[in-house]
Nucleic acid binder design. Structure first.
Lengths: 188, 188
DNA sequence: ACAAAAGTGTTAACTTTACACCCATGT
DNA sequence: ACATGGGTGTAAAGTTAACACTTTTGT
């Protein structure tokens, strides 16, 4: 609608009174990328009185990870187009959605570093260079390969599978998997 | 009501459609301890369909810090009694309130260590032994005084006021205050 | 043999931990 | 002078940061 005509919006859907938020979120995800039961995490709630014009609408932010290279967006869903955007080039969005996205990016960085959220992207095997590349994209930095390996392995989230990947080019990489258990860090 | 008769409940109030959640929370706080505009932080939302019986009620957890030694609870508010409980001796509560409290305790520990949330408890001056004691109560551990000082000071949250407190007994302690600015830590 | 990408080790700086004695005040 | 609680330093262990060469594969 008017001041925001042509702007992008975050996907979302009004909650029904007999519906879990997680189910609502997964309905939206299914609409867009066709997968069911994505693991999502709850984040901040936005409740300013005028955030969506006259009608009071409270929004809550959920984050889930999907691989944009393997999942095809259904471009026309419920009369809206869909598109992937780089985390570092988010376009102007309607209502308070840029604020919500910025918050989500902060939360995503925190998830990356303080949880094993990447497990949902890699339920099976992965290589350390793959993980490092995701860290670099999300944190928007360049990391030293040797130090990244030492630090990430010491988090004790992953284990060696004993297998190697098929190198497309260059030396094949060791394959790791996420452990079941998450050891939590000391706070102070 | 019935399966929970006589159990304690968390304070809370139904949100009006023209009301900010922060205002709603502060209304409840004002009812109980008579202070206005306490800084509170938003935490998890609880949305199981049956969490309060048949009526769908979504709850959101807010945390604020007050000093139970200086604030007097209004014991009878809206027909309910109020009482302070030790963080380490929470009684049985109705509905999913124990789950909400457990979550709040985890979040509180995180706030303590990763934010300057104590600033709302100490808008003015405080001593390091006071802060250490709060850390020990909330984290439920004993900390070495020398190491605590070094570590806490290096967080760069506080500054020396140059003043001392009036020692009740023993040597007077230096007074510190929280800085305005919060420097954020590197993630990885 | 070369190109491409993965794997590895060392040193210096810094941080954390464990630990015990001295200092300032009131009585 | 003594009781009470606050302040401080040091050494060993562990962690982080900076840095370049070698290995494995495909062509």
């Amino acid at each position: 609608m008017d001041p925001y005509k042509g702007y992008w919006m975050l996907p979302g859907s009004i909650l029904r009174s007999d519906e879990l938020i997680e189910d609502n979120v997964n309905r939206v995800i299914y609409d867009r990328v066709g997968i069911k039961d994505l693991a999502v995490t709850q984040h901040h709630l936005f409740n300013k009185l005028d955030r969506m014009g006259k009608t009071r609408l409270i929004a809550i932010n959920y984050i889930g990870l999907v691989d944009s290279r393997t999942l095809v967006l259904k471009r026309e869903v419920r009369d809206y187009e869909s598109e992937w955007f780089s985390i570092n080039q988010i376009p102007k969005a309607s209502f308070d959605h840029n604020e919500i996205i910025n918050d989500a990016i902060v939360e995503l960085k925190d998830l990356l570093v303080n949880s094993n959220t990447l497990k949902s992207l890699y339920p099976s095997d992965f290589t350390l260079p793959e993980i490092q590349s995701i860290y670099e994209q999300i944190l928007n930095t360049k990391l030293d390969r040797r130090n990244f390996r030492k630090k990430f392995i010491k988090l004790d989230l992953i284990e060696d599978t004993g297998y190697m990947n098929d190198s497309l080019n260059g030396r094949p990489a060791k394959l790791y998997r996420f452990k079941e258990t998450i050891k939590e860090r000391d706070l102070f």
